[in-house]
Structure formats: C-alpha cells, structure tokens
C-alpha cells in the first residue's frame, strides 16, 4: 500500500479539519493531496500527536488529524496514554508505518522487528485502534473515525517509497502565522495582536 493513496481518501473526507504532520514525506505528500493553510508541519521528532492533541483539546468542536510516523511515535509513546486519558472525540491519530526512519536514511525502526503500534495504542487505553490494509478500507474506517465519540488511532502499513510531489513551500514561522490566521478566519477568533504605544491604550 502506498501512503499517498490513503492520503487521497483522507483528503476527500477531511473537509476543513486541522492537520498536523511530521516527517518530510508525510508532510509533502499530504500537502499535495490537500493544500491550504489548515496544515501544520512539526519539526520536533515525536511531537506530531502531542501538538494535535493540544489543538483537539483547545478547539473541541473542530476536527483535528495527526499524521504520524513510526519512528516519530516510537520516540513519544507516552503520548498514547495521554490521548487515551483525555479521549478527545475530535482527534484522529493516523500512523503511517513504513518500518523505517525514512527521513534519516532508511534505517529500520522497531516496528519491523515485531512492535505492533496499534496494539500499543490499544494497551495504552485507546479503544478505537485498528490496522487498515487498503485505501478502500481506509475510506470506511476514517469516515467512522470522523463521526466517532472517542479518539481514534488508525495504523497504515505502507511501502518504503516516496511519491513525486512538490517540496513544502514555507518555513516554520510562515507556517505558524498562516495556520493561526486560518484558525482565526475559520473560527472567528482573534489570536494574534501587536502591542501598541501607551497613547493608544484606554485607561487600564
């Protein structure tokens, strides 16, 4: 299974969900399937699911999707019990498991040696956790996840191959500002502001 074939299915169904991605190939292939400012690329290995959890708890009515890698999740396994404990219904955690540290030179991760991260997620207390074996099955499982009243974990075993897509078009700081402005516009919130000289301030 190619990850981009599952991403195409997810992009059809995701609507304006906020999406958090990590390692390089997940980010660029997802961005090619669903471009726009509701995407946030993470640079700290492991923190994809944690940042998505913070978004899901901070904005409980908005759908949030984490697209994680096996190497990344292995580095932050403790995110799974924390997600289970808070159980946000608006969070779908998708694991793209290619059994390799792909961005770091194709070195094997523990998942190829038998570590089953869906079993780990279930053991951590995430009851809605399953492997998906085809894009068609992804359509069903992902649709159900978007409607579910509990957090969902979906594992995808994928080939160790990248698809030809354009590079990610912005750096970290631009990504941050575009993402926050997107949240402001779509949620009617005011998040960013600048300090003004005292003469502009009302008595305080």
């Amino acid at each position: 299974m190619k990850r981009i074939d599952c991403f195409k299915v997810m992009a059809e169904l995701a609507g304006d969900a906020l999406v958090v991605t990590g390692a390089g190939a997940n980010t660029v292939e997802w961005y090619a399937c669903r471009p726009g400012d509701g995407n946030f690329r993470v640079r700290t290995m492991g923190l994809v699911s944690s940042i998505a959890l913070g978004m899901a708890l901070g904005l409980p009515h908005r759908q949030v999707i984490a697209i994680d890698g096996d190497g990344s999740l292995l580095m932050n396994l403790c995110s799974l019990p924390t997600i289970a404990r808070k159980n946000p219904p608006n969070l779908v955690h998708v694991l793209v498991d290619n059994e390799v540290y792909e961005a770091s030179g194709e070195i094997d991760t523990a998942t190829g040696a038998g570590t089953d991260l869906v079993a780990v997620a279930r053991g951590a207390g995430i009851r809605r956790a399953s492997w998906v074996n085809s894009p068609d099955e992804m359509r069903t499982v992902f649709s159900e996840a978007l409607e579910a009243r509990d957090a969902t974990f979906i594992g995808l075993k994928v080939e160790r191959a990248r698809s030809e897509v354009p590079p990610y078009p912005m750096d970290e700081v631009e990504n941050k500002y575009r993402f926050i402005r997107h949240v402001e516009q779509t949620e009617g919130l005011s998040i960013l502001s600048a300090h003004m000289p005292a003469s502009f301030l009302k008595d305080s």
Partner: peptide, 11 residues
Amino acid sequence: IGICTGGYLVG
C-alpha cells in the same frame, strides 16, 4: 511542549 503548542495555535 507539544500540547501547549497545539493549544496556542488554536487560540
């Protein structure tokens, strides 16, 4: 750090 970052990004 990740959870608080996600929280900040959504206000």
